[in-house]
Design a protein around this nucleic acid. Structure first.
Lengths: 147, 147
DNA sequence: TACACTATTTATAAAGATTACTATGTAAGA
DNA sequence: TCTTACATAGTAATCTTTATAAATAGTGTA
């Protein structure tokens, strides 16, 4: 369940000498609980009820810390602001061009392309990133209605 | 050669009712000629000699037009500003985490993953985007020297 | 528990990229 | 040439993200 991932994340943070604060805990919880690939502003707004005085900078600071430890992945889908995703298992994303919805889908990791890229370019490969773009079922339906 | 691609691009623009202006032509030429994945500012600076009065907005406007027609692809590699790539053949990019260099490499198009993603999510798939990250040969050498 | 040290938060300013807006200019067809 | 709609220049505004400094609060230790 979610709290297990959360505990593991907190432990990972402690091992890196990162202090636990209520704000940090809340941001982490939000990322683990929500699977909505939120922007920094999404998180800020979602937690502003519990932390009325929280600064946007705190959200960014923590997201950076999480990223450095590898708990969180930053993504940029061409729209203005970055989106952040709690790293669980290996999955890829498919993004709706019309409404911007992001959906996970599982697919065997593309190890081969990393090997090929390394051979062709001489790079030492660390990771890759793959995103698929299209139209989600909801937007397809709407486009059909209004033909 | 390059002028062939350029002609084709110009024709494609005309078919879409887009007028050819000297600035537009120059931006297009720059994108076709340079294979450096420039930012909007790169283009602006490169052309400021020929067009001392050109506005940054003109660069952005044209890049948007080119994108809408499908001549150009916008990419965001996590750093501040977007990079723009003239669409030629199917290739992918490998990016150096250390110096930010972008290198093309060819690889068979990943059609299968689009099909799988479509099946699993119900999306109508349009395209995908894949990037590999690592360390380029130059930066590897430097890291070895300073060990 | 109290203390000390330092990371963290807050608040705000600043930077940087991109977009919006309006008057002026210009491409392209009649 | 004339006309019209589109494009450009110039600038302001917006938006995201980072930097800064003072206040606050975790965490280990006595």
């Amino acid at each position: 369940m979610g709290s297990e991932m959360l505990d593991h994340a907190v432990q990972s943070l402690r091992e890196h000498g990162v202090r636990m604060t209520p704000q940090r805990q809340a941001i982490l919880e939000y990322l683990v609980t929500e699977h909505s690939h939120p922007t920094a502003d999404d998180i800020y707004k979602a937690l502003s009820g519990r932390f009325p005085n929280m600064s946007v900078a705190t959200v960014y600071n923590n997201l950076r810390v999480f990223k450095e430890i590898g708990l969180v992945q930053e993504m940029n889908y061409g729209d203005a602001s970055s989106r952040f995703d709690f790293v669980t298992s290996r999955h890829y994303h498919i993004i709706c061009d019309t409404c911007g919805k992001v959906v996970d889908f599982n697919y065997p990791v593309l190890d081969e392309i990393e090997a090929v890229a390394s051979q062709l370019t001489g790079f030492k490969v660390d990771r890759h990133r793959l995103e698929v773009y299209g139209t989600c079922p909801t937007c397809q339906a709407e486009q059909t209605h209004t033909h």
